[in-house]
Every structure is written in C-alpha cells, then in structure tokens.
C-alpha cells in the first residue's frame, strides 16, 4: 500500500510527489492550479494550509457553522466537507476572489456599511453565502433572506445587520 505517504506541509506543488497524492486541476479565483493532493485533504485545508487563502475560515470543520463557505462552480458549499481531490475540474471562488480593496463586491461594501460583522471570523463565509443566495434566486423577502442565510452562524450576533446588508444588495440587483 502506498497511501500512507504524507508530504511536508505546504508542498502541494512539490515535484517529488508522494505516491498517494493525486493530480487535480482546480480553478481558484480564476487562476488554474495543477495540484497534487492527498485524498484526505479537504478543500478548506487545501485553501488555508497549502494555498495561503486563509480568508476562508475554519469554524467547526464539520459543516455546522458555515464559516468555510465558498462558491463551488458558482454554488455555495461548506468547503470543510469536500475532499479536494474530488473537485478535479471545478471552479472555486473564495472571499479573496469575490473582491479586493478598490474593487469590492457589492456585498463586501454593504457589509462594511451596515456593520454586518464584529470579530469578522464568520464574515467571509457570510459574504460567500450571500453571494450564493443571490445567485440561487430563491430569496426576495427579509424572512427568506434570514432563512436562507441560516447556514452561517455568527456568534457576535450581527444577524440583523447582515440581513440589512444582503437585502440592500439583493434589492439593488447589482451583485456581480
């Protein structure tokens, strides 16, 4: 059996591939990556530990908080519950890819304006989730926004401000 080989951390691009690592191509925030991934690495750990994309947060590692929400082929999912290797050929958008200083996504701007966060730890997940919500198109009312944002816990309790921010962008209809 060869699957016991573990590479050193941060060597997803290492040339001497551990035998258990598998090739996968993922487009992350528009950039194609050819990666060698151990099958037991989650998308979340790949992003955070190997690609330096720490905007995506680990809040529970079990799909119970939503902090790790990213867009996978345009749809919001919990990245902690996806084996990265299974996503060969997929496109992933993280909070870093939604927008950056100077070209903020409307949701990012609305979150700042409405003070829709405090500690900021659930925030990237909330924003990615809201982007997914808007793309899905099943929410119109505040009540629907609240229900459909319920997969993102916020222990600081910024919920009312988050709802304000998401509704503003939803109503303006200018989310990219």
């Amino acid at each position: 059996m060869t699957h016991h080989t573990s590479p050193k951390a941060g060597t997803a691009h290492a040339s001497a591939a551990p035998m258990a690592s598998m090739g996968a191509s993922l487009t992350i925030n528009g950039t194609p990556h050819q990666l060698l991934i151990e099958p037991w690495t989650t998308l979340l750990d790949l992003l955070r530990e190997q690609l330096g994309l720490t905007g995506t947060k680990k809040g529970c590692d079990h799909g119970q908080c939503g902090a790790c929400t990213v867009l996978l082929d345009g749809r919001r999912i919990n990245s902690c519950l996806k084996l990265a290797v299974s996503l060969d050929g997929s496109e992933v958008t993280t909070v870093e890819g939604l927008g950056q200083a100077g070209r903020l996504h409307p949701l990012q701007a609305a979150f700042i304006e409405h003070d829709a966060f405090q500690c900021g730890y659930c925030t990237p997940g909330q924003i990615c989730s809201a982007a997914g919500l808007i793309a899905e198109g099943h929410a119109r009312s505040r009540e629907e926004v609240r229900e459909q944002m319920s997969g993102n816990l916020c222990r600081c309790g910024a919920y009312t401000n988050i709802a304000d921010a998401v509704l503003e962008v939803l109503e303006k209809g200018d989310a990219r």
């Binding site: 799909g63 919001r76 919990n78 519950l81 996806k82 989730s129 997914g132 919500l133 899905e136 997969g151």
Partner: peptide
Amino acid sequence: GASPQLRNA
C-alpha cells in the same frame, strides 16, 4: 433540513 450550503452538496 440542514442549510442551503449542505443542500447544495
């Protein structure tokens, strides 16, 4: 059931 993220996956 669950959450939109979980239902998407």
